[in-house]
């Protein structure tokens, strides 16, 4: 009797497991479809001409991609400038941010000093404060420093990035033994050299993950650059997208509009596909304790 009951339960559970697996796949496929559908439509529409686009929707790509691209490049939006500006700002931000955040984390991790017990909680406290709430003072400061239309106010502030700092600190706790630093001292290595030659290489995995995140968030940033950059030659891609939206878009060749959107989205997607494993792991790693 007992055995029969057990068996029944096993069977029941087995069936349940099977059904749950099918349900899981169904939901996952639906959700994946919802994530990818928009980009597929974007790709299709970027390859079709304006008149094709007006005549209705199809799932088959057209042959107008090169033509749309040519029209966009020869049009009024300075997209090559935009791309170059976005690249400069994002690359410099990522480099400065990871280098100095690692340095800050190292200061807290490797040294004992009086103010440490105040500074560490302080950095954690300011972590959540959004940049928008200090934007007013920031804009006034930038105009007083005569740095409007310059990339400096977009790049230099990333030196003080509490979120990146926190990730680096977490990573150091798990993989940077203090005995190693002791050993370097005994060998006569100066503190600054120890940081550059020993600590930085050991932090490579964390640095790579955070460099990608900083790059992407800088690449996608619209709010702050839009307040600082007014000269057409200095604008980054998100500002150009906003300009495209603000223009009387019905007069536009829609093929061009789609190519422009694709131009801002697809480079990130391609890079992501190559690095996705590290990125997804990085998100999980940084999250364990928030």
């Amino acid at each position: 009797m007992d055995m029969a009951k057990n068996e029944g339960q096993e069977l029941n559970k087995g069936m349940g497991l099977h059904a749950r697996r099918i349900l899981a796949y169904l939901v996952l496929i639906t959700v994946s479809f919802l994530c990818l559908f928009w980009f597929y439509v974007l790709f299709i529409n970027a390859t079709r001409s304006n008149s094709d686009l007006q005549s209705g929707f199809t799932f088959i790509p057209g042959g107008n991609l090169a033509e749309n691209w040519k029209n966009l490049v020869n049009g009024t939006l300075p997209i090559w400038n935009g791309l170059l500006n976005s690249l400069i700002v994002s690359t410099c931000s990522a480099a400065l941010c990871v280098y100095f955040s690692t340095m800050t984390a190292y200061a807290i991790h490797a040294y004992e000093f009086k103010l440490k017990k105040y500074i560490y909680p302080f950095i954690l406290m300011i972590m959540m404060i959004p940049t928008q709430v200090t934007a007013l003072g920031f804009v006034q400061l930038v105009s007083k420093m005569k740095l409007e239309d310059s990339f400096i106010p977009l790049i230099v502030p990333t030196v003080a990035a509490p979120v990146t700092f926190f990730y680096m600190k977490q990573y150091m706790e798990s993989s940077l033994p203090l005995s190693l630093i002791e050993a370097a001292r005994i060998d006569g290595s100066g503190e600054f050299r120890t940081f550059n030659a020993i600590v930085l290489p050991l932090m490579k995995p964390a640095i790579a993950v955070q460099a990608i995140f900083t790059f992407v968030s800088s690449w996608n940033n619209y709010f702050t650059p839009a307040l600082i950059l007014h000269d057409d030659k200095k604008k980054t891609l998100p500002i150009l997208i906003a300009q495209l939206r603000a223009a009387d878009w019905l007069k536009f060749d829609m093929g061009q509009v789609y190519v422009m959107i694709a131009f801002s989205i697809f480079p990130v997607i391609i890079v992501y596909l190559f690095l996705s494993k590290h990125i997804v792991q990085g998100v999980a790693l940084g999250s364990v304790k928030g």
Binding site: S32, C35, N220, L237, V257, I261, I265, V268, L273, S276
Partner: peptide, 20 residues
């Protein structure tokens, strides 16, 4: 990989895409 992808997309471009 797929479900994390939209997080990295430029919000302004994604929004422009939805607008069109």
């Amino acid at each position: 990989t797929v479900i994390y992808l939209p997080n990295l997309i430029m919000a302004s471009a994604f929004s422009m895409l939805f607008f069109t």
